[in-house]
Simulated assay, not measured.
Amino acid sequence: MKVYGDTLSGNCYKVKLVLSLLGIEHEWQHVDILKGEAKTPTFLAINPNGKVPTVLLDDGRVLSESNAIIGYFADGTDLIPQDRFLKAKAYQWLFFEQYSHEPFIAVARFIQKYQGMPAERLDEYHSLQPGGHKALTIMEQALRESDYLVGETLTIADIALYGYTHVAHEGGFDLSQYPAIQAWCQRICEHDGYVEMI
Score class of each variant (00 low, 15 high):
T137H: 04
N47C: 08
G36Y: 09
K113Y: 03
K134F: 10
S66I: 05
L143Y: 09
L21G: 03
A108I: 05
V3I: 14
K16V: 06
V15Y: 03
E124Q: 10
A38Q: 15
A142H: 08
D75K: 14
K87E: 14
H101V: 03
D78W: 07
T153C: 07
F85A: 11
D192W: 08
Y178D: 01
L161E: 09
Y4E: 08
Y4M: 06
E120P: 00
P179C: 08
N47F: 04
L175P: 00
Q186A: 15
L22A: 04
E65L: 06
P179H: 05
Q141T: 13
F73G: 10
C185M: 13
I159G: 07
I69W: 01
K87I: 05
G5T: 10
G60R: 13
D174S: 04
Q141E: 12
Q112Y: 02
G172T: 02
S100N: 14
H169C: 03
F95H: 05
V107R: 12
E25A: 12
E145G: 03
G151P: 08
M139K: 02
P48Y: 05
K113C: 02
A160G: 06
Y148C: 04
Y125V: 10
D75F: 06
L56K: 09
L17V: 07
R121E: 02
G60P: 02
D32V: 05
M1S: 14
D158K: 04
V195E: 14
F85E: 06
I156E: 12
Y72P: 03
L136K: 10
M197I: 14
A108C: 09
Q29Y: 02
H191V: 08
K87Y: 01
N67H: 11
V31D: 12
G131I: 03
H133E: 13
Q141N: 07
E152Y: 06
M197R: 15
H169P: 01
Y13M: 07
E196I: 01
F104V: 01
F104M: 13
I138H: 03
V195G: 03
D78A: 15
M139Y: 10
D6F: 14
H169F: 09
A45G: 15
V3S: 05
N67P: 09
A45W: 01
L21V: 11
